[in-house]
């Protein structure tokens, strides 16, 4: 197998997952924590890093499990349950390892890890990867790009929301309402990137 074009395709998929097809702003995945944990830049950063890490790793794991276990056994439809169990188990494992070996990282990321299992972006990326039939290298690029895209979106949102704290917002619009409208504006801005990657 020639790896050259694979890697360049992985790179392109990665960039497009960050900008043109941002998993949060075009697919609405991971919206719950996005709305919930975007009040402060600091917490958003922690969660964002945790998402990048878990998303990339579970994309790899799920790819391997899907292609080496489920496909040979003809149990592709089982992926829904298996993927989420793998994600949950992986998160649990990371939590234990961090707790044992790196108290610093555990302090930084530990509290966010349990939230990640229910983050639909993680499962969503794995499912998209299967539907689009990515090869392993491309799937890794896609996982990383999706995580990075989510990270960028939540940090930008947290920054904006910190600025909004003292603004007067109509009562009914406070909280989720205004956050969603800002997210809409961000999605609009990100649509501007779609010219970056022209059809090849």
């Amino acid at each position: 197998m020639n790896a050259g074009p694979e890697i360049s395709q992985a790179f392109i998929v990665c960039i497009s997952a960050v900008f043109t097809q941002n998993i949060l702003l075009t697919y609405f995945l991971g919206l719950c924590p996005f709305l919930g944990v975007s009040r402060e830049v600091k917490t958003a950063t922690g969660l964002g890093f945790a998402v990048i890490f878990v998303l990339t790793s579970t994309c790899m794991l799920n790819w391997l499990v899907y292609h080496y276990v489920l496909v040979p056994l003809n149990l592709e439809f089982f992926r829904f349950i298996l993927f989420i169990i793998i994600i949950a188990a992986f998160v649990q494992l990371v939590e234990m390892v961090l707790d044992r070996y790196s108290p610093f990282l555990y302090q930084q990321l530990g509290v966010f890890l349990p939230l990640i299992t229910v983050n639909c972006a993680i499962l969503g990326a794995s499912l998209f990867m299967v539907i689009r039939d990515y090869s392993f290298i491309v799937a890794v690029g896609y996982g990383f790009g999706s995580g990075l895209g989510w990270f960028l979106a939540i940090i930008a949102m947290a920054g904006i929301r910190q600025k909004l704290v003292n603004d007067r917002i109509p009562q009914g619009l406070q909280g989720p309402g205004i956050t969603l409208i800002i997210a809409g504006l961000m999605a609009l801005a990100f649509m501007g990137f779609s010219g970056v990657l022209q059809a090849r």
Binding site: Q171, G172, L173, P176, G177, A187, M191
Partner: peptide, 22 residues
């Protein structure tokens, strides 16, 4: 039809229903 439309609509719908509730 594009993604931003969904965010705007959901934001506006949330706004309207919350205001009624308030």
């Amino acid at each position: 039809v594009a993604p931003p439309g969904a965010f705007f609509m959901l934001g506006v719908v949330t706004w309207i229903f919350r205001s009624i509730e308030i």
